Amino acid sequence: MLKEIRPAIVSFAALACLTGLIYPLAMTGLAQLLLPSQANGSLIEKDGQVIGSALIGQSFTAPNYFHGRPSATTAPDPQDATKTVPAPYNAANSMGSNLGPTSKALADRLKDDVAALEKENPAQPVPVDLVTTSASGLDPDISPEAALFQVPRIAKARNLPEAQLRALVDKQTDGRNLGVLGEPRVNVLKLNLALDRLRAPKQPGS
């Protein structure tokens, strides 16, 4: 009987070793060699400390920073475990909103958000990604138009020329992958880090 089942046992052991050990180790090694940053989570550091990932958005609400897309992720309510509370960019609970086009709650929220943004920058139409959530709730990017829309507010809050901020947005904009895939985008965390490093231009005679 052992003679009959031995080929099956040997095949199982060989395939388990190949697919469960050798292949994963080889792919991990290649990833670390060729794309170490991406393989380790595209982590972003500041002053030697990890402050986030380029793949997961963060909530910025202060007027002197660029804001990302709204996030519909939630977390358990500390007061009642049977309920949830809003928790923007909660990576442990990636999700979008389940509110549909006929939802009054969604329509009211969009109306209020658009009205607030129109007050912030009445000269420009409100970019759609500043009022709509992504499917994951973790989108780290916004469109260049959404970033440029916020320039007047940030210029006022930081006392910086708008032209300098627009140049910063242009510099931080990533184009389409391979020139054809996706859309131009700006990573909000990277943009805000670059914003913190920005200095107002020196005035003549200063």
Rank of each mutant, 00 (worst) to 15 (best):
S206K: 06
K119G: 09
K202N: 12
L193D: 04
P63E: 13
A72C: 09
S103K: 05
A194P: 01
L99M: 10
P152G: 07
P161E: 08
A8V: 03
A87Y: 09
A105N: 09
R197N: 15
L195Q: 08
L35F: 14
S134L: 13
N98D: 11
G41Q: 08
Q49G: 03
C17L: 15
Q32W: 09
P70K: 09
H67W: 11
L168W: 05
D108K: 11
N121V: 08
Q38K: 04
K202C: 01
A163L: 05
R185T: 06
V151L: 07
G182D: 05
Y65E: 09
V85F: 03
I9G: 04
L191C: 00
K104D: 14
P127L: 15
S97I: 02
K190L: 00
S134F: 12
Q49C: 02
D80I: 13
T73I: 13
A146W: 00
G175L: 02
K46Q: 15
L35T: 09
E162N: 06
G179N: 08
Y23D: 07
F60H: 07
G52E: 10
G29Q: 06
K83E: 07
G100S: 10
A81F: 03
A62K: 15
V151M: 03
G182P: 05
T19G: 14
K119Y: 00
V186S: 11
I51W: 08
V188P: 00
P36F: 10
L15E: 02
S42D: 12
L25D: 05
Y65H: 13
P78C: 07
V126P: 13
A8I: 03
R158Q: 11
G41M: 12
A163C: 01
A72G: 14
F66W: 15
D108R: 07
N159D: 10
P76G: 13
